[in-house]
């Protein structure tokens, strides 16, 4: 009997272990992956706005000298370590994907948890840094560094937090056995987001911490 299949996407309906939808689309790539890449390219303009705002206002606090300046506040060794942790989370993320692609669900879960843990470490470091700066007298309104620094890194931190929640959701689905290997794309998409947040940090780290402020 004819069965004109419209929705084969959800895993429960996916025909026998065939996770790759690319045969079905005009571009040869799956819809969700295309969507996440589009979303990420949109995010590039979002973070671009804050990074360029940071560059525009950088150094203006010397003009309106008030409150502590970045060269007094920034603890480069500490943030280098948390940045390193975030960078490593990208490695664990990609290892998680590799694991599910070869059907190794135990390793998938380990690497997912590791990624979330690394991410949490990074966010924890950020929380520590924020409180430390606040203690030293840098508030949102103290000077332009306070304004741009807290908002830019805070929004990035929020993105990382969303990523952690996402990873934990994926992990719990896997624990419930609802993440068969055919659905590796769910991991891949979470990973794309995660890596994107990581590469945004590569630039933020360079912009705020490494490039000299005068």
């Amino acid at each position: 009997m004819a069965q004109a299949v419209v929705t084969t996407g959800s895993s429960e309906l996916a025909p026998g272990g065939h996770a790759d939808h690319s045969h079905d689309t005009n571009t040869g790539v799956s819809n969700p992956k295309l969507a996440i890449w589009l979303f990420l390219s949109s995010e590039a303009l979002f973070f671009g706005a804050f990074i360029s705002t940071y560059f525009l206002y950088r150094g203006r606090d010397t003009q309106f000298l008030k409150g502590p300046t970045p060269d007094k506040l920034l603890n480069i060794p500490f943030t280098s370590v948390t940045s390193f942790v975030l960078l490593m989370s990208s490695l664990t993320m990609v290892l998680a994907l590799a694991a599910i692609q070869r059907g190794d669900h135990r390793r998938l879960r380990i690497w997912l948890l590791a990624t979330a843990l690394f991410g949490a470490t990074f966010v924890g470091g950020q929380v520590y840094e924020f409180t430390e700066f606040y203690r030293q007298g840098l508030h949102l309104g103290t000077n332009m560094f306070g304004t741009t620094f807290f908002v830019l890194t805070g929004l990035h931190g929020a993105h990382v937090t969303v990523g952690i929640v996402w990873l934990l959701l994926v992990w719990s689905r896997s624990m419930q056995g609802r993440l068969p290997s055919e659905k590796s794309e769910a991991v891949e998409i979470a990973g794309l987001y995660w890596h994107f947040v990581d590469i945004v940090w590569i630039f933020i780290f360079t912009a705020i911490y490494l490039i000299p402020t005068h």
Partner: peptide
């Protein structure tokens, strides 16, 4: 985006 895996096979 990650889970809405609806695919309508246009082809």
């Amino acid at each position: 985006e990650g889970t809405d895996l609806v695919t309508v096979p246009a082809g």
